[in-house]
Design a binder for these strands. Sequence first.
DNA 1: AGCATTATGCAAATGATTTGCAAAATGTCA
DNA 2: TGACATTTTGCAAATCATTTGCATAATGCT
Lengths: 150, 150
Amino acid sequence: MCHHCNYNSILKTSELSPTPNRLKILEIVGNNNRPLSAQDIFETLSRSEEINRVTVYRILDLLVEKGVIDRISSGGRSFHYGLAPNKNHPSHPHFYCKLCGNLECLNPEGVHLEIEQIIRTFPGVIEKVEVRLDGVCKICLRNNKKFSNH
Amino acid sequence: MCHHCNYNSILKTSELSPTPNRLKILEIVGNNNRPLSAQDIFETLSRSEEINRVTVYRILDLLVEKGVIDRISSGGRSFHYGLAPNKNHPSHPHFYCKLCGNLECLNPEGVHLEIEQIIRTFPGVIEKVEVRLDGVCKICLRNNKKFSNH
DNA sequence: AGCATTATGCAAATGATTTGCAAAATGTCA
DNA sequence: TGACATTTTGCAAATCATTTGCATAATGCT
């Protein structure tokens, strides 16, 4: 979630003209406290205007390509999208609930990851690190007693 | 990869009768040094015998459910499968090459992950942690000069 | 052998994403 | 402003990974 970002200028500095659709999609991604699926974004946007699903996919691809947003593996079959890490939003781990399929952001302080050794010795190029915890979220736990003793 | 495991007994202790197909699929997963997709496993198995793709999926689901193997997000659209961590194979991070789509295992020593704080304070149940590095592997780097200065 | 249970195959469905192509919108420049 | 190139969007269909439903085959048990 970001209240400090000017999405318009983010687009411009990323070599993307700030078209209405791009802006709206970036706002939806940025104003949410969790990474959303393309479907989530499509549904949200559809509530206020007509837009094609393919357009959503294409804009998401573009934003990922320019490094504005991150494509995040959810643990399920669909990708989720969140603002790319920057000064205001440090890189952080996510939690995936295998029951409701929601992905949530975790505090970056909670996880200390030391990968210097790998970065030093890995023969390829490392562009991104993803840390994801999987399990059952609080809400599903309450609704699903049988998981409470795992 | 595992040279110390008796797959037959692993199946038995997991409440699964060691049918030929289950054994072969577990062997393919276990004898490989990287997590494979269902498609990889299907193709490998198909070289030596007739088997249906759906059967492969079903056996993989079963092995995951019983905790024998792990379903791992690849960074691409398909899941990959590797032996679940145990005494012989500690949990370890993976590297996904966005060009060739291969997933490889990284040394567990290379990554230090401290998640005690999250585990202590998270309101849901955490069952699994996945760490994945994304980028371009050594081989694709060699074949794709344009990525060598990223 | 007879019957229940389990495992497999096959066809089709589903869900997420991508592609091809054409129409609409936008930008550029004389 | 008009003509033309470029970019953005929509629509239909394709693709890819995975799942479902249902029928048959294999296996286990008494």
